[in-house]
Nucleic acid binder design. Structure first.
Lengths: 212, 212
DNA sequence: CCTTTAAAGTTAGAGTTGCTAACATATGTC
DNA sequence: GACATATGTTAGCAACTCTAACTTTAAAGG
């Protein structure tokens, strides 16, 4: 998905200097993580794919972990964009717009499961990547905003925040369970499609009494 | 946690033969995954901890991935045991017993986040580890059974199965979000503790109309 | 009880990787 | 046009995965 952006610009200025190695590396690693799993990726292989020596990546990234962080960051940005688009596909303030965000989230997870997992399970440099946390919070804020509009509350109302978080637990869990395939809905219940389940849960949660 | 079992038996028969290297390795790797992350573990380091040469592990496991699969398998077993215990701590058929299972799940994830993540995100040899999938389904069956009893339905009733799966999406998502810390409940909603949230969601889901 | 066989260790080594150091070559600025 | 800098290169070390060939111990059969 990021690969189509790569050849667009006018880089590749010379045979020696690559032009836009950093972006190429991020795209290559994103691909590798997707196909070979998060630990099946190597800096050397990514460099090979980009057509540079195995030492070149270290001019752009301090170490292996920093590349992964960059991949996670661009993925989180894309995820948020998808979520916003998913909300915009339905009338503002409707329950469907909330469910639409969830559908985008689930679709992202299924399309790029390796990167999705990486994005969330990356913990090695939490303190060194506060931006990643910020972007995650932005995702939740997107949900909270839609929920608040749907309930006719101000965006920072605790009731809306709590509902948004609970809802996101559900969506996040469903996304992970379907890509990890350790726990699957029973065949008897498999007929339920995502959209039906999502709208039912959204409806149920919005009229739920606040806990505590 | 598995380490206390290690010294119990009467192995360690000689200085040359280790006695129970396989179990020791699984325990060591479990520890390493927890402290150094899933990719920060090496077979060599595990062997060093067990006091054997770096080639010894390959007498018990085909490759690195097979060790990880063994770790995931024992973890899944432990998780299931915890869940059953969590249900048994409350009256049979009560909503609390369902919530109790969820609490055990969340507690497991927080106590051993690295292993928990590994257990679910392990995808490298799905076809080679059907037992892992079976054990995952057993976990869901535990939930479904409690839900069915709570609703006064037979254990295989589709309505109970669907409820159990939806509930588990929520619990699984909450468990992951709290250990991954990319998306956190807002400070305004942070006062809600796990138990209150769980019981509220259980109550809400059980009286939810089936989707579709 | 002694022999044999297989299980479970060992050392040695080939091939890959992460990362650093020292060097080479473009790019852009004064 | 000279120079500083960004961005490549090659060479190489230490660590890791996994294999091959050998050694030691445990267990089984006669």
């Amino acid at each position: 998905m990021p690969s189509d952006v790569i050849g667009a610009g006018p880089p590749a200025r010379s045979a020696y200097h690559h032009g836009d190695l950093r972006a190429h590396l991020v795209a290559a690693v994103s691909d590798l993580v997707e196909t070979h799993g998060p630990d099946g990726f190597s800096v050397a292989e990514a460099a090979r794919r980009a057509g540079v020596s195995s030492a070149a990546p270290y001019k752009h990234f301090r170490d292996r972990a920093e590349i992964l962080r960059a991949v996670a960051m661009t993925a989180m940005d894309q995820l948020r964009a998808d979520m916003v688009a998913g909300a915009a596909a339905h009338p503002e303030g409707s329950a469907e717009s909330v469910a639409g965000i969830g559908m985008s989230y689930i679709r992202f997870a299924r399309t790029r499961p390796g990167v999705f997992r990486l994005t969330f399970s990356l913990t090695e440099g939490h303190d060194e990547a506060p931006e990643l946390l910020e972007r995650g919070q932005d995702c939740l804020a997107t949900v909270a905003q839609a929920v608040a509009r749907c309930m006719g509350l101000p965006p920072d109302a605790p009731a809306a925040q709590a509902r948004a978080y609970m809802l996101w637990c559900f969506v996040h869990g469903h996304a992970f369970l379907t890509i990890d395939r350790k726990i699957e809905a029973s065949p008897a219940a498999a007929g339920i499609d995502d959209w039906a389940m999502l709208t039912a849960v959204v409806a149920g949660l919005l009229r739920l009494k606040p806990p505590g």
